[in-house]
Design a protein around this nucleic acid. Sequence first.
DNA 1: CCATTGTTGCACACCGGTGTGCAGTGGCGT
DNA 2: ACGCCACTGCACACCGGTGTGCAACAATGG
Lengths: 189, 189
Amino acid sequence: MNETRDRILDVALHLLGKNPDVGMGDIASAAGVVRRTVYGHFPSRLDLIRSLTEQAVTEMTAVLTDVTASDSEADAAWAEFVARLWPVAHRYRVLLALRRGEYSGVIHGLLGPVDELLANLVKRGQDSDVFAQHLPADVLSQVAYGAVFSIADSNLPNGTLGAHAATITSLLMLGVPETRAIALVDDQP
Amino acid sequence: MNETRDRILDVALHLLGKNPDVGMGDIASAAGVVRRTVYGHFPSRLDLIRSLTEQAVTEMTAVLTDVTASDSEADAAWAEFVARLWPVAHRYRVLLALRRGEYSGVIHGLLGPVDELLANLVKRGQDSDVFAQHLPADVLSQVAYGAVFSIADSNLPNGTLGAHAATITSLLMLGVPETRAIALVDDQP
DNA sequence: CCATTGTTGCACACCGGTGTGCAGTGGCGT
DNA sequence: ACGCCACTGCACACCGGTGTGCAACAATGG
């Protein structure tokens, strides 16, 4: 239906991932469209970014609620979360940069629910002693989550290696022993 | 000697830490000085940021070379590095944001030597089997280093707790077992 | 007392990005 | 063939930040 709109969103995500400060002009031309057209779909730059973020939040909460619904251990849930999030995380790595800077307020607000779900999961893990407790759950979850995006940010090939590496790294920093982390990763399809 | 210049640098670091996009005007007024005066000391915004970065690089390489010079294990060296870096890391947390965005080229260049030292240390740890090997040394070092700054970025009290937490977290994600990590932290003064 | 040095307070040009207005144009479905 | 719709290609106003030029001013020290 809205073919152009989708292409703009797609290309914007890609460009913003490379440089959070790209202008509407660059996004437009990369989408094979004129700047004016972009403003036809998104009244302002903020609207564009908000749409992108909402999209990301939707996908992430879907995965998160699904993963935390099962009665498996917190570390297994986390492993599944990262594994399933990975393709998306790579696309949405720009969010990491977007949390600072101009629109931090809006972005932070939109990301709130996700943060909460993450913190809950980590808290659960800490309470059942599978996660380390040297940091409060909300901070620990943010740092682990940041690490995942940070790895997504590196120029690693976007293949399975990346997903495995990200999962192991985040599990490690959550305090899961390396052997257990590797076992959990091997369980992922 | 250069009292004003130092105050500008100091204040700029502080403000940039809160928002990497602050303008010269805000920096100037926060330093109790007029915008024109800032340009008297730093011909351009880039020069200001470059000075800041060079300052950070100097401090960090000093600690790093010192720490890696000893013949202790890589994990102990890392622990000492983070512990000693911590007060500085908190001040220079803006570097994390500065690596992206407008001046990424320059910043990245200046930070090159530090990155190299870090990667070497991690490589040493991987070769002697104290660090995990699920990621190449250069990526792993960057992610661990990023985690430290990321924790510095959180609004934790800037006390000992922060330093300990940062050290443990980074050690964990390097693959050091939690017990060992705690032991290493307790060795720090 | 004079000279140097650092700071001030303007004014100004410039730039790049944002957002808008509006008249055109081309394709698509009916 | 007709109207609808999205897209185009301008033009324009506006904004905020950067960097400069210059005259005035205060403090410092020889």
